[in-house]
Simulated assay, not measured.
Amino acid sequence: MNKTMKWTSAILATGVLLGGSGLIGGNSVQAATTGAKTVKQAVQQPSVVLKYKGQTLTQHAKIVDGNTMIPLTVLRDAFGLPINYNSTTKTYSVGSDSMKLNMEVSDYGVGTDLNGYYIYSMTGNHESKMINNRLYVPFKLLSDYLGVQGVYNPTQKSLDLSKRVMNDIKITSEALDKSNKNASIKVQYPKISGLAEEVQTKINATFKKQAEQFVSNSEEQASRRDGTVGNKYDFSQTYVVSFNREGVLSIVTDQYEYTGGAHGGTMREGHTFSLKDGKQIELKDLLKAEPNYKQKLDKMLKESTKELAFPDAPGGLTEKPNFFVSESGIVIFYQQYEIAPYAAGIPTYTFNFSSILPKGTDPFTSFK
């Protein structure tokens, strides 16, 4: 689902330009047109005043389908993040390493990924949009993945933005490309630095082992391909950092494979670590303040999945639930076909810690 998503950009011959004059370096993002079909635009959207550290910005956010959309250039002008543009792929990039946001503008919309990981199907609406010839990014995307937080003032209809306090670590990408005549095999996995040596070695060994095992399995499958028939096989792994605060690091990896047929398949895995000792955190470690957390989660999951799940699927809390931590709480997910048809993708459900734990409980106390 992630690597195979393609965005055709031939129609927009000159791409998206920064600045009111149509040149990189201005205060807005504009779309060029060619006289052919143009990007669908939203008009007359309600505005939200934007502030950064209490100072009012000249640019405003807009509300689109209930989502607060932030002008891309706010990341440059307020947060000091440079915006780069690739004229060949018609892609804008902002940020770096695991927090590098890429937006490919095409006639079909804006393809958004974080360091190669497409996040449109994760925990909410993360789709960037063209609005009146300007490129906007959902506040939810910035909040969930780029370390931005905001406080909304309903009286002033304003959103005060600021940076989150993150764990003092660095996350870079390691790449493995084992493509051959039978298959494309490309893998990215995270590498952590800035921790005690024994801690980061333990965490990094987990991701390296997972990546190497996926490559080995992919090579083995590719070796059985009949090279005289059909397209090459396709195997890829990407990742995204879903939480990096309070002494806790949560990373999601997606492994995609296509070996023929109508479509490929994706296997998702959540990895959550304590940065004190490098141990993987389980649900019981985060929810130990609530003795009945299993019963609570089981009930909430059954209620959430009842309209989607197969008639004979339990749809509740499994023996070893797949999960990760996000800025919104605990995220439980099921693999493709586990409880629902392929069209349902990877069913994903987010629960605030406050809906599970006793009032005032901090799930991260023991990891700080």
Rank of each mutant, 00 (worst) to 15 (best):
S47C: 01
V48N: 03
V48A: 04
K51C: 00
Y52V: 07
T58C: 00
Q59Y: 03
H60Y: 08
H60N: 15
V64A: 11
V64H: 12
D65K: 13
D65I: 01
G66K: 05
G66T: 06
M69K: 05
I70L: 01
L75D: 12
L75P: 09
F79C: 08
F79G: 07
G80A: 03
L81D: 11
N84V: 02
N86S: 15
T88G: 10
S93V: 00
S93P: 02
S96R: 09
S96K: 09
S98C: 11
S98N: 13
K100I: 07
E104A: 11
E104I: 05
V105N: 00
S106L: 11
D107P: 00
G109S: 08
G116Q: 13
Y117F: 15
Y118N: 14
Y118C: 08
Y120P: 02
Y120L: 11
M122K: 10
M122R: 11
M122H: 10
G124I: 03
G124Y: 02
N125M: 10
E127D: 14
S128F: 03
S128W: 01
K129D: 05
M130I: 15
N133D: 14
R134Q: 15
R134H: 12
P138C: 06
F139R: 02
K140V: 09
L141K: 08
L142N: 09
D144C: 10
Y145A: 09
G150C: 04
Y152S: 05
Y152G: 06
P154T: 07
S158T: 09
D160C: 06
